[in-house]
């Protein structure tokens, strides 16, 4: 069953003023449980606005949203419980840290859910382990940590709520390559361990291609496509026309194809490209004529 479903979802900023802008235009998506969805699109393509709808922070101008089969905004008192089902990690989440210790900050979400102290303690420790924070860091003030550590604390704060769907808005922005790989690694691990649905908003095609099982492409407030990476990158020409890059390795193989070396398959990760290349070079596989 689809854990997230939207029906003709639209959102307009500043209705009735000269600054009126359609941010999300008639979006219909269905996201199945257990997927790791990559959301890509230009700045201003409506990605952030869309994900803020999914846990009821923004009210759609028109259309419906269903979380786990339950319609949002039907009953306002149900909004909070539904919000606990969809965990949202904002861009630069480290700026929302406020508690005296990391432990207390991670416990903020679970505490708001009204869980018992024992359960809160279990969750904080478990997520701290999951995001790779050692026990001594938990007693430190979040303001003493490095940028990458702060971000992991902030992400842990949302993960500790154990939402059915975890949405992360550009969790790797502003980090160095090593920090990025760490964050993406922990998201992968979280997904494998919990088998929950994860949505990952990103600018980097490489990151999305490598990690996600489905890709949602947004273009000027509309959904361009929602499909598997193979099918999405198969339309690399259209993506490039929209000004979105395709992974570098896909470009290399597209160019090879144009030069007459058709490997017969779409390549979007370096590992797969290497395997394919080695197979062809060792004669296991033939180039397409």
């Amino acid at each position: 069953m689809a854990v997230i479903k939207t029906e003709n979802l639209s959102y307009v900023y500043g209705e009735g003023t000269p600054f009126r802008k359609v941010a999300v235009d008639n979006v219909n998506i269905e996201i199945d449980e257990g997927e790791l969805v990559g959301v890509i699109g230009h700045t201003g393509s409506g990605k952030s606005t869309l994900i803020q709808h999914l846990n009821g922070l923004l009210k759609p101008s028109s259309g419906k949203i269903f979380i786990d089969g339950e319609e949002l905004w039907l009953d306002k008192s149900r909004l909070r419980p539904i919000r606990f089902k969809v965990g949202l990690v904002f861009q630069y989440p480290e700026y929302q840290l406020f508690e005296e210790t990391c432990y207390k900050d991670i416990a903020f979400g679970p505490k708001n859910m009204g869980l018992s102290d024992a359960e809160i303690d279990r969750r904080v420790k478990e997520t701290a382990r999951l995001v790779g924070l050692s026990a001594d860091i938990l007693d430190k003030s979040p303001f003493e940590l490095s940028g990458g550590q702060k971000r992991r604390v902030a992400i842990a704060g949302v993960m500790a709520m154990e939402p059915k769907v975890l949405i992360l808005d550009e969790p790797t922005s502003g980090l160095d390559p090593k920090g990025r790989e760490q964050i993406l690694g922990l998201i992968r691990e979280y997904h494998q361990e919990k088998k929950n649905t994860v949505m990952l908003v990103s600018h980097s095609m490489e990151d999305v291609a490598k990690n996600c099982s489905k890709i949602l492409v947004m273009n000027s407030a509309k959904v361009f496509c929602y499909d598997t990476p193979v099918n999405v990158f198969h339309r690399s020409r259209e993506l490039e026309q929209m000004g979105l890059s395709v992974p570098q390795i896909t470009r290399v193989f597209n160019r090879l194809k144009a030069m007459g070396y058709d490997f017969g398959e779409d390549v979007y990760t370096v590992d797969f490209g290497r395997k394919l290349l080695l197979q062809v070079l060792s004669g296991e596989k033939k180039l397409k004529e």
Binding site: N55, F84, F90, G109, N112
Partner: peptide, 13 residues
């Protein structure tokens, strides 16, 4: 606005 949204998403009431 941003911080309020972020804390609301963590269940702040």
């Amino acid at each position: 606005d941003k911080i309020m949204s972020a804390q609301k998403a963590r269940g702040a009431d």
